[in-house]
């Protein structure tokens, strides 16, 4: 327990060297990685999404690929395709960028729905089927996708069913003044990245994921999760309730959060900590209410009783 906590603290401290003043978001991203899910970062351009992703990739020691989504992108551009080799008179498979451990997808909502769904299927199944042949993706496989807020022009918003595949959605927001000043004075963060080192091996990461599975969950927390989910299904503010997959994602992320907090048992506090990133992007307010996802989550936190 001690060594794992030390290790995780070490990882987030190392990331924090580059990504300044974003400790919570870093923790959330780590939580997402430990829970075995994929992360969606939604924010304006230029607030450090890509920097976070790159730093994250280096420190976690994962093989890193990056894809910039554009509107003319085809599924084959991500998954790969077979190319005819004249010397051997045969088709050779050229794997696309998806065959990596850490995939950064920039501006996922710029690509057409066809390309988006090709990626999302790969994310859900951890394998791709190209030209009738199924190929396994490497493990661990972690996707960090960024997207611009939907009001920006030239975007194809992800449908709810595909948003559901991201275990969490976070946003970075503008840095606070002190961090921004520190950043401005410290020079180009891209240069500083060369000084980073991997603090986590693949084996260690997989072991940590195992530990997440072993986090003890008592019935009272499960029923709290159930009450939260039931509330979204019954309350009039919500257009529709959370799915069972959302409940699973909530439990899984909360367990990872408990591990990050250095505990091997789950508290309702863990559930509350991850509720917003897990639930906010899956929720929609009903027609007669203008609350956004975050306000709905606040409503859940305030109204659903922790103890019954």
């Amino acid at each position: 327990m001690q060594s794992e906590q030390q290790l995780l603290r070490d990882v987030s401290a190392e990331i924090g060297r580059i990504v300044l003043g974003k400790e919570r978001q870093v923790q959330q991203a780590l939580c997402c990685l430990l829970a075995g899910g994929h992360l969606l970062i939604e924010d304006l351009p230029g607030v450090g999404k890509t920097t976070l992703a790159q730093t994250f990739a280096i420190v976690t020691g994962l093989q890193f690929r990056r894809v910039q989504f554009t509107s003319d992108m085809l599924p084959a551009d991500i998954l790969g395709s077979s190319v005819f080799d004249r010397n051997t008179n045969a088709f050779h498979f050229h794997p696309g960028p998806v065959f990596t451990q850490f995939l950064l997808v920039d501006e996922i909502n710029r690509a057409t729905p066809k390309t988006q769904s090709a990626l999302l299927e790969a994310m859900a199944e951890e394998q791709v089927t190209i030209e009738g042949e199924t190929r396994l993706l490497p493990r661990p496989f972690f996707v960090m996708a960024t997207q611009n807020p939907l009001f920006q022009s030239g975007t194809f918003p992800l449908p709810e069913s595909q948003l559901d595949r991201f275990i969490m959605r976070i946003s970075l927001g503008y840095p606070d003044a002190r961090s921004e000043r520190q950043l401005l004075e410290g020079g180009d963060p891209r240069e500083q990245m060369s000084g980073l080192s991997a603090r986590l091996s693949v084996e260690q990461l997989l072991a940590l994921r195992e530990r997440v599975k072993q986090v003890e969950v008592r019935a009272s927390v499960v029923s709290y999760i159930q009450r939260l989910i039931a509330f979204t299904r019954e309350d009039a503010e919500f257009a529709f309730g959370l799915s069972t997959r959302a409940a699973l994602a909530l439990l899984q992320s909360a367990k990872a959060w408990a591990l990050l907090e250095g505990r091997d048992y789950l508290l309702p506090d863990d559930v509350q900590a991850v509720l917003e990133p897990v639930a906010a992007h899956r929720l929609q307010s009903s027609a007669d209410s203008r609350a956004d996802g975050r306000e709905l989550v606040q409503r859940m936190l305030a109204q659903v009783s922790v103890l019954v």
Binding site: L267, A302, V304, S305, V306
Partner: peptide, 9 residues
Amino acid sequence: REPGETPRA
């Protein structure tokens, strides 16, 4: 204690 408040909070 608020109903939505965990014991720790």
